[in-house]
Design a binder for these strands. Structure first.
Lengths: 169, 169
DNA sequence: ATAGATTATTTGAAGCTTAAAATAACTCGT
DNA sequence: ACGAGTTATTTTAAGCTTCAAATAATCTAT
């Protein structure tokens, strides 16, 4: 097309000049913005309506799905937070009577954490309202949009998992 | 269609029996998982490669886009974090010589924050590598997938903004 | 059985984060 | 010029979060 002395086209240059990944960056920033907006609002409402923090709510949510309790390690993996973090979180929620901790019968290292009746009752009340907040957040998306987004996020999750894992290529 | 004695269909029941929003909840949890995975890995690599925290990187990223500097309030809005949070963050990055703070000439309440040469140089080095990490995270998505995801997240962002804003319906 | 490796949890230090209250500077209508 | 209201920032207290090191219990391969 052009006769100007541009020696290499973009393709050929790909190795010497690092590729442009601004689109992926924009995608990441948008993903982050969505999450931050929703999370911030949920945090605000949990405090306002129930005087509870989001980490405490999240912890109770995990335990509500596990009637027989979970160990700290299980919780740590599921919630993707550090062990040390959970130690303090569990400590505070146990002090307020929302959680029980007992030593595992099969492994004396492990603590099995579970909701007390109080904890379960309070969580379920909060969860019902929480669910409606979330529904409202996604309210402008059609069912089709929601399904598409779900599918694309599943793909993203797997892609990120591969990029994150081992590095063993 | 059916002649069974089910008095009300789902539509009619919507008020009495709260709707089921488990799909939206699943969508939210998946969004959160994707963000948490990527963010955690970025945080880990920033520490490992550059001994820098993610909040510091984010702050520098904002300032890199604003050669003339920004006030704390601007930064607070853009980064969606509290003012008090920024005070400490800026304090630490100024102490390490990455940031300059000067009082605005037109408003003696406002601090104008900008990157020093050191800060800018270090940020650009990190940013180049960071961009390639992010690209790899989304590496399994086709261009089409990326475009679709971008569009759906834009919709989500607007939906959440509406659900979050005023409440004045 | 026992040493060495692994796994579960806790602790400690540093930093991040928020909400709420306090301080200081600006704006606007009179 | 004055006072009321708004805006920019800092401070404080409490809690969250991570990483790294320490402790304790379990598992595994001799």
């Amino acid at each position: 097309m052009s006769e100007h002395a541009i020696p290499l086209d973009a393709e050929t240059n790909a190795v010497a000049m690092p590729e442009d990944h601004r689109d992926e960056l924009r995608l990441w920033l948008r993903l982050l913005t969505c999450t931050t907006m929703i999370e911030g609002e949920v945090r605000r409402r949990l405090r306002e309506r129930f005087d509870v923090t989001l980490p405490r709510f999240d912890l109770m949510a995990q335990l509500d799905k596990a009637p027989d309790g979970m160990t700290l390690s299980d919780l740590s993996k599921r919630m993707m937070v550090s062990n040390g973090n959970l130690t303090g979180l569990v400590e505070r929620l146990a002090a307020s009577g929302h959680l029980d901790r007992r030593t595992s019968e099969t492994d004396r290292r492990a603590q099995v954490i579970s909701l007390t009746e109080l904890g379960r009752a309070e969580f379920r009340t909060m969860a019902a309202e929480h669910e409606s907040w979330i529904a409202a957040m996604f309210g402008d998306l059609s069912r089709r949009d929601q399904a598409d987004l779900m599918r694309l996020l599943a793909k993203t999750k797997m892609s990120a998992r591969r990029a994150t894992a081992g590095e063993e290529s």
